[in-house]
Design a protein around this nucleic acid. Structure first.
Length: 772
DNA sequence: CAGTGAGCGAGCTTCCGCTTGACTT
């Protein structure tokens, strides 16, 4: 029995702290929040001061029971949850759920897991800060009210099972707005003029004209006047320059960098980082702070000096400037900076390498550069060419790491300029005027969307990955690759004497793993923006955060703040419920020439679809859902009519009718009572004929055979199959797991039946049983 | 995951922010 119990939020943290303290201390984890509102009920008493009803979620019962026992065995309990609003609330919930008495309970905090920090914290116990807890309750209740009143409105006005919330709806809006910026972007072109010259020492120097003629005629005119011109160096200027390293990683910057450099998705980054954390290789990965502990600073400094020398060391403490940052943890860094690499899982090794380098470089000296600018005069014109060179004279942090940039690489590599002197005349080799186009704003990647969310203070490190996945799961946003298209551009070249021109081709607009809004996303977004302007405003979170801060300072009571928000909000809900039309995004595509019926595209109960005919005419309308890659806003009448050609009868095979249709799960071939999905990558449902359909049926048959490991002639309802998770037994459509010590191929019928009777119901079956 | 339709309409869906294992049949 230990005298003291310390409760922290994370298991790995508990283990570390336990090591630091003597055997008088037991350190346990509560695994995050231990009480919450019911997942399906509102659990907020709106009439009576918004009083929330909290309960212990089923998966937390064991944790609470264990902590209760541990608390009963201890003289004193230290609530050491994170030093932020949520952490304070967790401590309060723990106190209530564990029925801890004031005199046996203290609240302590530390924002770095080092021995001195913890010992210091224990010396400064305090009470749970009720005001801060109230700020958290306000946050929780507001999110619940917004989510649970907006979502049902969408079920009525748009489509069932949709969702809306303070964070996800604004994140979706960012993607929609960006897409519209891109659509309305007016592409302009101009001519970039570059000359290549030879110096007196027979070296080549490339220089660009700082102004760009707007059209080909002007570019031609410029080149024409250069034909007879002499060129000479007007001035050479050398200036020192610097580059500084980036601050250590936070969750958001780690996600960005690992997306750019490793191509990881946001959730992949978090999974790998979690593993590194659990293995003790890095500090906590959900953080908004760029702060490094004193020990980390010291160790890093030492390492840099030993490895690279004194001149490379420049200890720095960075300041967190992110909106709403709570800084309950350190920045993400290696726990042991002297370990620069290790053997193991490739993803872990690569992510660790990124973290190690970022941490080390953040403590290294700036790189020093020498930037040279040479201006080259033209005898026949006023303008001057400019040649730029850049040399690194001291590499500093660049020795270890170079930051990558999101946007397209700048044109033209910079290097050292050849030696030139003022007034030196230069011989023109050739000059080109190349048509260049302005770029629309870039589409978001998962990581750059997180970056933007963070800048607006929307979402938290613990939820970025979750939010990104929610808006994709709801099909508001899709992550896709898009092929580029060919673009022609003009190039004029001034050679030794004459000007030639040509049209060249480049590929542009290709996208990889970018976020696009879907029809549903746009329709939901437009509906919400129209009806709930305040919540959909990018600044909404920031503005309510200010009020939460007021609550945390004890200046206003949280139910007062919530009432002030809720009353007008609820009014808009009522107005929208009564007055707003259903939002379907309906578009009239035209009239079918054959039947003279109108054709529409709109959002149906099961997603985007096309419709021919109307309900008020004698014939019922027919429907077809859109295929992947088709949009309500862009589909043409012909494409819609093609879709409406389904289902098509193809003929008869083995006395069974064969047809092609399109259902809720996409296009399919129907053969008798069997359906098989068509892969639109390889087949077009409108092109498939009976021969191809029969081939697909045969293919499917073969696949089914391959899945089959074993059958029993005496009982055909029992099969041993190979599934997604390995071999299993199927009995009358019921699936049974095979224990690890059994070989699937050698199972007998009796063994299968026995396993079936003994098998424990899985999670889904247990749930349905409880329902009954 | 299993399944392939749409003026029936019962009963369902939903938020954000803290945490990790379950373990898919």
């Amino acid at each position: 029995m230990s005298k003291y119990l310390i409760i922290v939020e994370s298991l790995a943290k508990a283990k570390i702290i336990e090591k630091y303290l003597g055997k008088d201390y037991k350190v346990k984890s509560c695994y995050g929040h231990v009480r919450d509102l019911h997942p399906k009920r509102l659990s907020v008493d709106i009439e009576n001061g918004f009083v929330p009803t909290y309960e212990i979620p089923p998966d937390k019962k064991d944790v609470i029971a264990e902590l209760k026992t541990a608390a009963a065995d201890s003289e004193h309990v230290w609530l050491a949850t994170d030093e932020d609003r949520e952490g304070e609330a967790i401590s309060w919930h723990l106190k209530v759920a564990l029925k801890l008495e004031d005199k046996h309970t203290s609240r302590i905090t530390f924002n770095e897991i080092t021995k001195p920090a913890i010992l210091e914290a224990i010396k400064k116990p305090r009470k749970v800060n009720e005001d801060l807890v109230n700020a958290q309750q306000a946050r929780r209740v507001l999110d619940r009210l917004v989510g649970f009143e907006l979502s049902p409105l969408l079920w009525k006005k748009v489509m069932p099972a949709l969702s809306a919330g303070r964070v996800q709806s604004v994140a979706t809006r960012m993607v929609v707005d960006r897409e519209r910026d891109i659509e309305s972007f007016k592409r302009e072109s101009s001519f970039r003029i570059v000359g290549e010259f030879t110096t007196s020492e027979d070296k080549t120097v490339s220089a660009e004209l700082p102004t760009r003629p707007e059209d080909e005629a002007a570019a031609h005119d410029f080149l024409d006047t250069c034909r007879v011109a002499c060129f000479s160096v007007k001035s050479i200027e050398t200036k020192p320059g610097q580059k500084s390293p980036s601050p250590p990683f936070t969750t958001s910057t780690l996600q960005q960098e690992s997306s750019r450099k490793l191509g990881f998705s946001v959730s992949q980054t978090m999974t790998v980082a979690q593993k590194l954390y659990e293995e003790g290789k890095i500090t906590y990965m959900r953080t908004d702070s760029v702060n490094l502990s004193a020990t980390a600073l010291e160790e890093t400094k030492e390492l840099i000096i030993t490895r690279f020398g004194d001149t490379y060391s420049k200890p720095r403490q960075y300041k967190t400037r992110t909106k709403g940052a709570q800084e309950a943890h350190e920045a993400i860094r290696p726990t042991d900076p002297s370990q620069s690499a290790f053997d193991g899982d490739r993803s872990m090794v690569r992510l660790y390498d990124l973290i190690w380098k970022r941490t080390i470089t953040s403590q290294m000296a700036n790189a020093r550069l020498e930037k040279t600018t040479a201006r080259i005069g033209i005898s026949t014109r006023e303008e001057e060419f400019i040649a730029r060179g850049e040399v690194v004279i001291f590499d500093g942090f660049l020795k270890v790491y170079e930051v990558s940039v999101d946007d397209e690489q700048q044109e033209g590599e910079k290097g050292l300029l050849p030696v030139m002197t003022v007034d030196e005349s230069l011989a023109l080799q050739h000059m080109t005027a190349r048509q260049r186009f302005t770029q629309p704003p870039p589409r978001y990647t998962e990581a750059s969307l997180v970056k933007n969310m963070e800048e607006q203070g929307i979402g938290r490190p613990a939820t970025y990955a979750q939010t990104i996945s929610t808006i994709q799961k709801r099909e508001y946003v899709t992550r896709e690759d898009r092929p580029g298209y060919e673009r022609h551009y003009r190039v004029l070249t001034l050679g030794s004497d004459d000007i030639s021109s040509a049209t060249e081709v480049e590929i542009t607009g290709a996208e990889k793993a970018k976020l696009f809004p879907t029809d549903i996303g746009e329709i939901v977004n437009d509906f919400l923006v129209e009806q709930f302007n305040r919540i959909m405003d990018y600044g909404f979170t920031a503005s309510v955060e200010e009020e939460f801060d007021e609550i945390a300072l004890g200046r206003i009571a949280w139910p007062v703040m919530i009432a002030k928000f809720y009353n007008p909000f609820h009014e808009s809900i009522i107005t929208a419920t009564e007055r707003a039309d259903k939002a379907t995004g309906e578009r009239l595509l035209g009239v079918d020439p054959a039947s003279e019926l109108p054709v529409f595209a709109r959002l149906g109960r099961r997603g985007p679809m096309v419709q021919i005919g109307e309900y008020n005419t004698e014939n019922k309308p027919r429907f077809s859902s859109l295929q992947d890659g088709q949009n309500i806003r862009t589909i043409s009448l012909d494409q819609a009519l093609d879709l409406l050609k389904l289902p098509r009868d193809l003929g008869v095979y083995n006395e069974e009718p064969v047809s092609v249709g399109s259902g809720r799960y996409g296009p399919y071939v129907r053969y008798g009572e069997k359906y098989l999905s068509i892969d639109t990558e390889t087949d077009d449902p409108l092109e498939i004929d009976l021969v191809r359909a029969i081939a697909l049926i045969a293919e499917d048959h073969k696949k089914r055979e391959e899945r089959l490991i074993k059958t029993f002639p005496e009982n055909p309802s029992v099969q041993v199959l190979n599934g997604k998770f390995g071999p299993y037994i199927s009995i009358d459509g019921k699936n049974v797991r095979i224990p690890k010590d059994q070989t699937p191929i050698s199972l007998t019928l009796d063994e299968c039946l026995e396993l079936a009777t003994k098998s424990k119901p899985g999670r889904s079956q247990r749930r349905s049983r409880r329902k009954r």
